[in-house]
Design a protein around this nucleic acid. Structure first.
Length: 235
DNA sequence: AACCAGGACGTGA
DNA sequence: TCACGTCATGGT
């Protein structure tokens, strides 16, 4: 079995199924950190169950850029409080109201614009699945956000790479420290079977693992992966 | 009381 | 291409 799959199995055994993407309203069993909602729904891959949830994931993906999830949750709840968590409602909502609502998530000037521009794009799709290229052409949607939207909102098996992924796997020696996003993405996609659930779980497990061992320096402290798996090639 | 959070964009080498 | 500054609120 290849190394990436071994890492996945180790993380899965350690942390269990993660139940991403967290949703405000679902039949999940695991609460989020704020405790306000049951956001996670382990082993239930039926989400999003409707267009409203699909859109919620997209907006969450934008809001969580360089921002912790509890803050995003507050912003989402604010938007929901305005009954504006739909593309049609976001369109009608004034820019100022939107900025006000998403303030807890930070970068509110930029993110309000991003949400507005994405919403126009989303409506233009008319229920079609967007391509990665199309998403990347939307202002404010970079590679990670595009892949998150595809993987979790549209169920397209495309691997999501984030800062944690780079940290963990460069430490393990799988990639160079400054490997590009696309380079890292290809490493995973070329060495794993193209499977939606696998991609969804893997990314969320990476985040869970990194929060515990790669958020504060020195990175990798007490990381069991470093003891079990090690490649000398780079580093 | 720094440091960081599930990044992306604009700019200038 | 690529490194670097900027954006902003709130945890820990």
């Amino acid at each position: 079995m290849n190394l990436l799959k071994r890492v996945y199995n180790i993380l899965l055994k350690k942390y269990g199924f993660q139940g991403w993407w967290p949703l405000l309203d679902c039949n999940g069993t695991n609460p989020t950190k704020t405790g306000l909602i049951k956001g996670y729904h382990p082993k239930d891959y039926s989400y999003p169950g409707n267009n409203k949830q699909r859109f919620e994931i997209c907006i969450g993906a934008i809001l969580t850029q360089n921002t912790s999830w509890p803050q995003v949750e507050k912003a989402l709840l604010n938007i929901k409080g305005l009954k504006a968590l739909t593309p049609q409602a976001i369109k009608k909502l004034s820019l100022e109201k939107l900025k006000q609502a998403i303030k807890p998530a930070g970068y509110f000037n930029q993110k309000a614009r991003k949400i507005k521009e994405f919403t126009d794009f989303y409506l233009s799709l008319k229920n079609r699945v967007p391509t990665r290229e199309e998403l990347l052409n939307v202002w404010g949607i970079g590679p990670e956000t595009a892949d998150s939207i595809l993987l979790y909102a549209f169920k397209v098996p495309t691997f999501v790479v984030d800062a944690y992924t780079r940290r963990i796997f460069s430490k393990l020696g799988f990639i160079k420290k400054h490997a590009s996003y696309e380079e890292i993405k290809k490493l995973f996609e070329n060495n794993l079977e193209k499977d939606l659930k696998l991609y969804q779980e893997y990314h969320s497990l990476i985040v869970e693992h990194a929060k515990r061992h790669y958020s504060k320096k020195p990175y990798g402290k007490n990381d069991l992966l470093l003891k079990v798996i090690k490649i000398k090639r780079f580093k």
